[in-house]
Simulated scan of single mutants.
Amino acid sequence: MKRPAIAVTGLGMITPVGHTTDTTWDGVCAGVSPARTVPELLGCEVDFACTVSGIDLDDAVGGRTAFRMGRYVKFALLAAREAVADAGLDPAHWDGTRVAVVVGTSSGGSAGLTEQAVALERRGPGATSPSGILLTIPNMPAAEIAIGMRATGPSLAPCTACSSGVTALSVARDMLTLGQCDIAIAGATESIVFPVAMTGLVLERADDARARGAVPRALIAGAGATTDAHHPTSPHPSGDVARAAVDAALRDAGWQAEDVDHVNAHGTSTPLNDATEAALIGRSYPHRPPVTAPKGVLGHCMGAAGAIEAGLTILTLQHGVVPPIANLDAPEPGFDIDCVTKTPREVPVRRAVSHSFGFGGQNAVIALQAP
């Protein structure tokens, strides 16, 4: 049986450079990081970060339910609302039994858990929130989206560290392929010591989307996942297992390496990770497609990073523009890759891949193509 094409029909983002998809894209293309000193980190050796600011989350969420939501949940709900509206869907009129929600996270509500622990120690049990559990458990972003969107289909919260977002997209794609749902709201969210970011995507079978008159932003062509089984934080120095995830995604998409027009790299700007990934890119894509890495602008959004970067890759497909890697003049000597630096590069992009490599050696790669 032929596998149905899966379309991304809606995007929603809240990131350190924008509270919407459009403003995030503009910020990433500008190539300027919003990193600043963060009060929560004062006294630490590193006291700066890229954070979401300039938005009243409670006011944006609205209603009387915001009190029970951690910041990571509010980000998720707001991004999901934008994605659903962008897809031209209305939860008041869809069959909620056929709508799934898959929202990944790396650390869930660890910030909320820390706040509750400090309150307990300093002021006693009476100072803790009666909603303490809801402020910390990792499935609450998916749960609150399901409640707010009247989505009564499957609801999942995958955790694969920094690759959680791509894992969520891959799971949602499989659910649509298997007929377990007709619409999937997928993405990832994160808020550790401070607010970070969230991306939501609406996925549908492409035929279903076109039948209702929706124009897909992109198609998910393939996905691949592997585990290094090597070290809790360091990648396997050979890069062979991560490359196997790339190969699996290309094989799933039915592509050859030379079909890839652009690579959105994990690009953490750490010596081991960058050296391993640069070598992987050089071996996997010898034709040297243009490479970007959004963490130079956004910082590392942890569990949300993969979803944000997949969303930005979709926007590159749409606009034919590869954003620059912020704070990079040129790749390290010996890195045989074509890094986009200084300014955005206009280039036709029909097929692209986005890499996500997480702590624990969890590798996830997603292949995206123009509709």
Rank of each mutant, 00 (worst) to 15 (best):
Q180S: 15
T167I: 03
T160C: 06
C159Y: 03
C162K: 01
C162G: 01
A117F: 05
I145D: 00
I133G: 03
P125F: 08
A188V: 00
Q180I: 10
R173F: 03
G179W: 15
L134W: 13
R150H: 14
R123P: 07
G132V: 11
T177S: 14
P130R: 13
A119Q: 10
V166I: 14
C181R: 00
A161D: 14
R122Y: 06
Q180F: 12
S155L: 05
A184S: 06
M175L: 15
T136K: 07
P130C: 07
T177C: 13
L120K: 07
S131T: 09
G187Q: 03
A127K: 13
I137V: 12
A117M: 06
Q180T: 11
C159A: 14
G187T: 01
P154H: 09
I183R: 02
S191H: 04
A119V: 02
I183Y: 02
L135F: 02
A184D: 04
T114E: 15
T160A: 01
G124R: 09
G165K: 02
G132T: 01
D182A: 11
C181D: 04
P138W: 00
Q116T: 11
M175Q: 15
A117Q: 08
G124E: 08
D174E: 12
Q116M: 14
P154L: 13
A127R: 15
A151N: 08
E190C: 08
S163E: 02
A188K: 01
T114M: 12
A127G: 06
A151R: 03
S164A: 11
Q180V: 12
G148S: 11
P125I: 09
L156F: 10
I137P: 09
R122K: 15
A188I: 00
S191K: 00
A119M: 06
A157R: 00
M175G: 05
L135T: 00
T114W: 13
G124T: 10
I183N: 01
G179E: 07
G132A: 09
A151V: 09
G132R: 11
T152L: 12
V171L: 10
G124P: 04
S164C: 04
G153M: 05
A117W: 07
I147Y: 05
P141L: 08
A142I: 05
L176N: 00
L134N: 14
L156E: 05
A168W: 02
T128C: 15
L176Y: 01
E190Y: 03
R123I: 13
T189G: 02
A157F: 02
C159Q: 06
E190L: 05
C162A: 08
E115G: 14
T189S: 14
L169P: 01
V171I: 12
T114Q: 13
Q180N: 10
Q180P: 09
T167D: 04
N139I: 09
A146T: 03
S170N: 05
